[in-house]
């Protein structure tokens, strides 16, 4: 009755959420008196290395996971749950988790606690703490079915130090279902940045950028200098300065970075809904009365067209 953690990989490299969740699971398992296992979809990544973050066993499901297919992912995860028989399953709140994990829960007839930002053990069970109503309220979530499934927002716990253990690798086979969907085209953005929902640093621009050219010339270089992902307000997206996928807020992405830099963003309630759990918020705005300053850790009252290029240069100088 272990805690089973979904360790997501991309092109043979584990995502940061894998170590983050395994370390948290190890802490929870200590209180529960159980052990931690990992499930890895597809070969190619060094599954044994997950032992460095506390995984006793790594269940590697052998199959073709080169492009995402929900039917395949659900069947593979169900096979891993069958092999590991965990009492708790933890998964990152990624696209896969949004698409496949609820299907897994339904298939197993169990409940799910979504998008947790904290996990603890209480009364012998795992309890999730999570934002609801766009983070305006928090609540606890518990699951009575088995396994109890929780998805966790990236960056909720920070990156652990790697230990020295190696996980025992267990191969799991499953019957891949006949495909019902065919991916006919895949478009990747020119800039290969971490997904907004997983990003640890985000630089966002608003309506004040005035054009897509300015957005590209002002926001993206600053994001690049920080190793951050670019985001945008709805006003900037609606005006065509940035694509839909970059919108942060109630009708965009919900993000949870360590650092969120809002450039020329007023701080409307629907924007805050998407980024209020950011650990550090920097607001750059010419209007000292802008509501964003009420939520900012650090504020700079100045023109973003002056601030961003200078800040980009200063941050570039830090690295070298």
């Amino acid at each position: 009755m272990s805690i089973l953690v979904l360790a997501e990989q991309e092109h043979g490299t584990f995502k940061k959420t894998a170590a983050e969740l395994l370390a948290k699971a190890t802490e929870l398992a200590g209180s529960l008196g159980t052990t931690v296992d990992a499930v890895v979809l597809g070969t190619g990544a060094d599954a044994a290395s997950l032992g460095a973050y506390g995984a006793a066993r790594a269940f590697v499901v052998d199959g073709d996971f080169s492009s995402y297919d929900g039917d395949t992912a659900v069947a593979a995860l169900a096979a891993a749950v069958d092999a590991a028989s965990p009492s708790v399953v933890l998964a990152p709140a990624s696209y896969l988790a949004k698409d496949a994990i609820p299907r897994l829960a339904a298939r197993l007839g169990t409940g799910q606690g979504s998008e947790c930002t904290d996990l603890r053990v209480d009364g012998g069970a795992v309890v999730g703490r999570r934002p609801v109503y766009a983070g305006k309220v928090l609540c606890d979530v518990t699951v009575s079915g088995t396994p109890a499934i929780f998805t966790v927002r990236a960056n909720s716990f920070g990156q652990p130090e790697a230990g020295s253990g190696a996980a025992e690798v267990v191969q799991v086979s499953f019957d891949a279902p006949a495909p019902r969907l065919t991916v006919v085209k895949r478009e990747t953005p020119e800039q290969d940045a971490v997904d907004l929902t997983e990003a640890d640093r985000i630089v966002s621009g608003g309506r004040s950028l005035k054009s897509a050219e300015n957005f590209d010339a002002i926001i993206r270089p600053l994001a690049k200098a920080l190793g951050a992902t670019a985001g945008a307000s709805r006003a900037a997206v609606d005006a065509g300065y940035a694509p839909h996928e970059e919108q942060v807020g109630q009708t965009g992405k919900t993000v949870n970075p360590s650092l969120y830099i809002a450039c020329g963003i007023s701080g409307a309630i629907q924007h805050l809904a998407g980024m209020r759990t950011s650990k550090v918020i920097v607001a750059i705005n010419t209007d000292p009365e802008a509501p964003i300053f009420e939520h900012a850790t650090y504020g700079v009252v100045a023109d973003l067209f002056d601030v961003c290029p200078q800040l980009t240069t200063k941050l570039g100088a830090l690295d070298s």
Partner: peptide
């Protein structure tokens, strides 16, 4: 019958006060 239950609704912890740099 619910398998997941949501309880203990509460306010998010207040953000530590920020400051404007100058």
């Amino acid at each position: 019958a619910p398998k997941a239950s949501h309880t203990a609704y509460g306010e998010p912890p207040p953000r530590p006060p920020g400051r404007v740099l100058d």
